[in-house]
Design a binder for these strands. Sequence first.
DNA 1: AATGAATGAGGCTTCATTCAT
DNA 2: GATGAATGAAGCCTCATTCAT
Lengths: 185, 185, 185, 185
Amino acid sequence: MSKKAIVLQTTLELITTQGINATSLSQIIKESGVANGTVYHHFKNKEEIITELYLMLTQDFGTVVMRNTDQGDYKKQFSTMWMNLFHYFVNNPLAFVFSEQIARSPEIPQSLKDRARKYFSEIELYFRNGIRDKVFKSYNTMVMEELFFGNVVSIVKIHENEKVTLQEKHLQQAIEISWRGFVKE
Amino acid sequence: MSKKAIVLQTTLELITTQGINATSLSQIIKESGVANGTVYHHFKNKEEIITELYLMLTQDFGTVVMRNTDQGDYKKQFSTMWMNLFHYFVNNPLAFVFSEQIARSPEIPQSLKDRARKYFSEIELYFRNGIRDKVFKSYNTMVMEELFFGNVVSIVKIHENEKVTLQEKHLQQAIEISWRGFVKE
Amino acid sequence: MSKKAIVLQTTLELITTQGINATSLSQIIKESGVANGTVYHHFKNKEEIITELYLMLTQDFGTVVMRNTDQGDYKKQFSTMWMNLFHYFVNNPLAFVFSEQIARSPEIPQSLKDRARKYFSEIELYFRNGIRDKVFKSYNTMVMEELFFGNVVSIVKIHENEKVTLQEKHLQQAIEISWRGFVKE
Amino acid sequence: MSKKAIVLQTTLELITTQGINATSLSQIIKESGVANGTVYHHFKNKEEIITELYLMLTQDFGTVVMRNTDQGDYKKQFSTMWMNLFHYFVNNPLAFVFSEQIARSPEIPQSLKDRARKYFSEIELYFRNGIRDKVFKSYNTMVMEELFFGNVVSIVKIHENEKVTLQEKHLQQAIEISWRGFVKE
DNA sequence: AATGAATGAGGCTTCATTCAT
DNA sequence: GATGAATGAAGCCTCATTCAT
């Protein structure tokens, strides 16, 4: 694992725990066991660490969601996408917290969020095609993505916080509800 | 205007513009034209400025909402409360931003939010009585307050952002929709 | 002696010994026995210390040179000015080094030098009047000032470096030579 | 052009623009597009870059000045030397600035200046012979060199700054004046 | 009530240099 | 010959806070 990767990972851990502002560079340096200058060899400044982390994770999301979605009808694909994201979040708690708390906070400037849109192009295409093929209502695609993410997030939260264990059928129900929100008819 | 009031006002302006974290004491001091020590004469530390500001504004909300609500039936009172809050927000943009962005953020600790509950006692009483008198559904009163605030906030946002000017009848509609959400049957 | 004065004095000592660039803030802090923040309470940044020092000393020069010059003819005044500066430099070795090494270096930006011109207004007036009254050749006054300063500086250097002690008559000779450079005929 | 030469050239450009102190190694590295380690492969440390640059340029001066001076009498040789240096400076503005601003500054230690004396041995010999042959007054040869350089520098400055274009006859005049300063009688 | 001098910990960043490849 | 990762000391500056007046 390269020093750069270590810094990114450490930063992810720290800011998901304490927030961006509460996380100082010296803390990142101390925690990652890397030298002062090493951080600045890889990143222009503190902000660039956050930026890179954000883009990295956002790209992850985009890629993960569309894995194995090249077959089946819209419904089947939707289900796959949903489960992809769900499992990703369940298996990567830090990415989940980051997506929930950091990615939406005002610390991430809008310009950066815009730059990251490209990683959602495939997802966007899926929804746009669905609208074109009269499968989905003609919502704004960005809104659809947000709703889709939001649904998964809600279930992940239940999965994490509730004492009751989620069963497979609960997930199927959640997917069903989510799907119904988009389809025509 | 006392020095203390100046500090509070300046702080309000700064944190609604930049957020709590981005606002330093030195900035408050510089902006308010008050001496260093004067701030510490009136406030124990930086946190106490925020605390006092929060309590002040929260008390404002509570008082404002219940103004002139001692007459009429529940519906009439509801309408008055709604309009009270609406006009307060429209006339105090900083209070609006504060209520929206700061008051809900994690920078305000839960303990402080709890302390501020007392200022909502009258509002809470209104809803509790309504439930007792079978006018309202028996929701949790905190939830009811949140919904009530949320409704007003939504309309204020429309008022602020939309190019279309809100007409009196639109407000009446909004109040009607809000009211329907609470009442039995 | 105020902390601010201590910082200025220490800075003067350090930069005349080592140059501006070789003098770090931490050194100034350590040497002056003042706290980090104290420096920044009095000065906006490192540059402002230099600026203030430069203006302070430059004002000194201007004032010192013109002391007791309100009587006598041009020649008598010239002699007084010359001796004033000579004694000032002899009694304030740091000011002398500063004037020689620092004040002319490119570390002092032209803009600052321009700002300091005002402190030489009396000296300039002396020369301008002399020209008007046909006592002096009509040189550029800035050039005249430079020459005047340069002459004194040369003698101070001899005074400092030579093994031979300067006698009163040597000074009178120097003044005489200096004076001849300016006068008509 | 070798990497080493690129580093030297870049350094020359940077320090003539900003001064030695203001020029950091990182800047040289960034600007020259050469790797970090490559610089240290060719130079022991930052100082050595300056040293090498200084010696290189100084050697240039020495060589250039004496080009085509093996024929003619002292006067003819003097004229050739003068024009050699003049054209070199005119065609190598960076070398000119370096010679003027850097080479004389205290950043170049005396020890280095002494080491570079050897490159002036031919020039020195010219003047020493001239003294021996009773052509020149018996000044100190180093002083003579300084004066010679200074004269050329002055004219180059006029050439660069003045709006009036220098004509051949002006150069001849300058050489004449310069020459007269040295010769006996 | 009000002031502003004084503090020192801690923040981010730049720097010259070393080392393994 | 060339590269770039890695280092840590040192630089400048901001911050919240305390204290004497």
